[in-house]
Amino acid sequence: MTGKAATLPKTATLKAAVVRTAGTNCDAETVYALERAGAAVDMVHLHSLMRAPEKLADYRIVVFPGGFTYGDDIASGVVFAVEMRERVLPELRRRLADGALVLGICNGFQILVRAGLLPDTDGRSNAAGLGQEASLQTNVSGRFECRWVRLEATTDRSVFLEKGQIIECPVAHMEGRFVTSEELRGQLAETGQLALRYTAADGGEAAYPDNPNGSRLAVAGICDPTGRVLGLMPHPERNVETWHHPHWTRGTAGGAGLSVFTRAVSAARGDR
């Protein structure tokens, strides 16, 4: 990486891992957001974890950033999820049981869903990949969509979020429409696992393009039953500076995305 941030709050104690592989492309800005939030961050290649999954024990936060891992040519996140199944996934579950946090952004969310870590209603993902309960499918528009959205946190279950909180940040994806059975969707709504929804500017129900992919119930992100795993399609790491917001020249300061990372760091440190 070519640059280091100008000023960083330094706390060397809390370690976070950003897991990357071929085609990961939001790693640098995700590292930066975590560092801004006070974590000490390592970029870790998936293949080194496949060889030595026990490395995960070093980290209290594990982040799967955005990108097009291996090109997403079969479907988004598939190859990564398959590579992770045998050795990395069991270790990740042990870390979760141990109180670690897991965050998946965009392609990372797609990977977590594919791997069965989200919504994970019964913790049953296995090495043959049979634990998948939901799916992120092609946007209704049929196109890649890059635009800013307004998110509302609709759960008090997730350690990454505060219920009622509004976060504006961009989406940039082709496959972001959250699909699952009617029954499971109802269950997730009830248990507070539908963690984030797209809203209109006035806070009302979001139609396209406020809901950029056509997800039912405007689902933008979900959490697991413990609230310690979060996956979302939008990119909070792309709104961590005042000048990130599209209306900053109109007086609306950016930076709201940073809270996802600062809340994660303080939760992982045991402050909350």
Partner: peptide, 23 residues
């Protein structure tokens, strides 16, 4: 066209290709 391109990746976008209240 512009919205089919990820113009925000790398987190460096300060002045975007589309501007204004409704972008």
């Amino acid at each position: 066209v512009i919205r089919q391109y990820d113009h925000e990746v790398q987190g460096g976008s300060a002045i975007k290709p589309l501007v204004g209240v409704q972008g």
